[in-house]
């Protein structure tokens, strides 16, 4: 575990192409432990690809990613062990529909961390309480609303006790009235000191929770500023244009 304020991710000139389409064209940045980095940018600009490179769901074409001091896009790296330390929350929730909520949360800790059934159950129950759904343990995902599904998906990731949480547009698939409950939970998570990288279009959330905001456009980070300064006098014309559309 890295102390708060120390470098968690160091990314040098990260590039990713699909075939001959260059999606990421050289991204360099650092993410410190305890930071909440919000990534914004137009659709198709490479936000998801960037996020998915961080846990190697996409294999970088070029460049370096260091996590907790170790280079991870390297042959010798144990991706499975690495991913246990990074939670990921998807736009489409991706809960396991054939398992109860409780099983969804317990599965990874049971099989990967080899904790006892007793421990797993206790931890699942306390996570359910934390996400505000203590009575849903025996429900199946199909019986939940979108907002509840996403909160369970967050609980499932938290069950592995990750060092960082990656969110890829966690509220984009939700009906408007359910966005709030998920953002509320993410705020609570941020307050608890969790390191978070969040791709989102929720500018209110960015303004309120982010410690830093990065604007990605055409595969590059165009603007990268502390949240407080970000919205004041944006001088990048592309960012201005983007903000005028989303704000």
């Amino acid at each position: 575990m890295i102390a708060k304020g120390e470098t968690l991710f160091k990314i040098n000139d990260l590039k990713k192409s699909f075939g001959d389409v260059d999606v990421l064209k050289g991204i360099s940045t650092e993410i410190k432990s305890g930071e909440v980095l919000v990534i914004i940018g137009p659709s198709g600009s490479g936000k998801s690809t960037f996020l998915r490179c961080l846990n190697l769901l996409e294999e970088p074409t070029d460049g370096e990613i260091f996590f907790e001091g170790n280079k991870i896009n390297d042959k010798g790296c144990d991706v499975n062990l690495l991913r246990q330390k990074m939670g990921m929350v998807f736009q489409q929730f991706n809960l396991f529909p054939h398992m109860t909520v409780k099983k969804n949360i317990e599965l990874a800790p049971l099989k990967l961390l080899k904790i006892s059934q007793d421990e797993a159950e206790k931890s699942a129950q306390s996570l359910l309480e934390r996400v505000g759904l203590p009575d849903k343990a025996t429900s199946y995902p199909a019986q939940l609303s979108g907002g509840q599904k996403q909160r369970i998906a967050i609980a499932r990731s938290l069950a592995m006790n990750p060092d960082v949480m990656l969110f890829d547009e966690p509220t984009s698939a939700l009906d408007p009235e359910m966005v709030g409950e998920v953002l509320e939970l993410m705020k609570e998570l941020a307050r608890s000191g969790m390191t978070m990288v969040v791709v989102t279009h929720e500018m209110g959330f960015a303004r309120e929770v982010a410690t830093r905001i990065a604007f990605i456009d055409e595969g590059r980070i165009m603007v990268d500023k502390p949240a407080k300064e970000f919205f004041e006098n944006p001088d990048n014309p592309r960012l201005k244009e983007f903000l005028s559309k989303v704000l």
Binding site: N80, L81, M86, M88, F96, L112, R156, M160
Partner: peptide
Amino acid sequence: GQFEAGRSLGFN
């Protein structure tokens, strides 16, 4: 997405 959810939890 099911596959990616599994892999991103750390399952091989």
